[in-house]
Design a protein around this nucleic acid. Structure first.
Lengths: 205, 205
DNA sequence: ACTTCTATTGACACTACGCCAACAACGGCA
DNA sequence: TGCCGTTGTTGGCGTAGTGTCAATAGAAGT
């Protein structure tokens, strides 16, 4: 007699999440093209076609994974005390480090998939995430409503975001920096950008 | 009668470069998996199998492209005057901006392929390039032979490198920052890291 | 128990990749 | 000049991955 691996019929949402969970893991540890849909299907205990049924194509499934992993919890910039900019930014950075430390591997594989400027869709998702992060920082610095030179300001903060990610990786992966180091570095750097560089740059056409 | 497209027999090196040139273009404008070897072969006026002959596999060809695009010209940190750290760093940043501006599209597609932590090979190539860039900066800042806290220092500079890339992108692609802005931002930021953050962080275990 | 709905399956068509034996262009040698 | 060996180059074969779709079979409602 056959092993009783009869087909399970699940709610679409449930099946969807099961597949997504597997995909998240595999895409996290290998390249896009090094992961086959068959493999995802197999590990999810499902036939390959079903994945196309739920997500359309492999690429769409991948984008869904990236999207899901890049949600930055808004808690990072919420309920900040009404003190100095310095202190607010410091708290914000601290919360960020908390989030990253807690979701270590998930966050790592999230930024691991960074393929900037390669295809429109991935790029769009990443850019959106960056904008959200930028909002958080500006909010913490109480500079959300700067209008003059707004774009320059945002551009600088976006660039800073890259350093933030890179530094976090240095901490988590290589261990070359510890948490306290990061805190100092990230806090003072963004303050330097906002309080020194931005005013200096502000005039240039 | 057929067009006289008889087969050309070239020197291996020459054929190799022709294929690489096409591959560079295509991988530059589309994702790895969105570019087929057949397409590269076609545009290079060559049969698909020949590419396997020269590069082994598609992935190896890709890695070759990435490797070739990431060579940072050492001229950036060469022959710097023996003046203050500030001025030397300033010159270094300026030269960097020159390089980037001149090789605009090539550089953009180079960093476009950044896929950190995805597969070992790509990661390795990127890390090596980062180390070289770090050397340049430390050399400019006359801090090449710092021993105490060397790893922290390098880690910070590597992280700074990410900001440098991101800021350059902001300049070239979005135009949100101009060259003068970048110069101020990049120069003062790295000085801030080296002269303020590094000493502050130095003690922490 | 029967029907209905739809989640799930299996098979088909197509494309892409790696491999390999056969072919032919070019340089050497008589 | 004409043959000949080296090797750059080709075309085709086998396999694996992807997307589509009609057919199947759980599960819920009657």
């Amino acid at each position: 007699m056959q092993p009783p691996v009869q087909r399970r019929r699940l709610e679409p949402d449930e099946r969807r999440s099961e597949i997504l969970a597997v995909a998240r893991t595999l895409f996290g540890e290998r390249t896009y093209s090094a992961v086959s849909v068959s493999e995802i299907a197999q590990q999810a205990g499902v036939v390959r076609g079903l994945i196309n049924h739920y997500f359309g194509s492999k690429r769409e499934l991948y984008l869904e994974v990236v999207r899901q992993m890049l949600i930055v919890p808004p808690s990072v910039a919420e309920n900040l005390p009404r003190t100095t900019t310095e202190e607010r930014v410091s708290i914000c950075v601290d919360r960020w480090l908390d989030v990253v430390e807690r979701n270590r591997e998930m966050w790592l594989s999230a930024i691991g998939s960074e393929a900037i400027g390669q295809d429109r869709d991935t790029e769009k998702i990443l850019l959106e995430a960056d904008e959200v992060a930028t909002d958080h920082i500006l909010q913490a610095a109480m500079m959300s409503d700067v209008v003059e030179g707004r774009e320059k300001l945002r551009a600088m903060v976006r660039a800073y975001g890259s350093m933030l990610k890179a530094a976090s990786r240095e901490w988590l992966v290589r261990g070359a920096l510890n948490r306290a180091d990061l805190h100092v570095m990230l806090t003072t750097s963004v303050l330097h950008l906002l309080q020194t560089v931005f005013p200096a740059v502000h005039g240039n056409d």
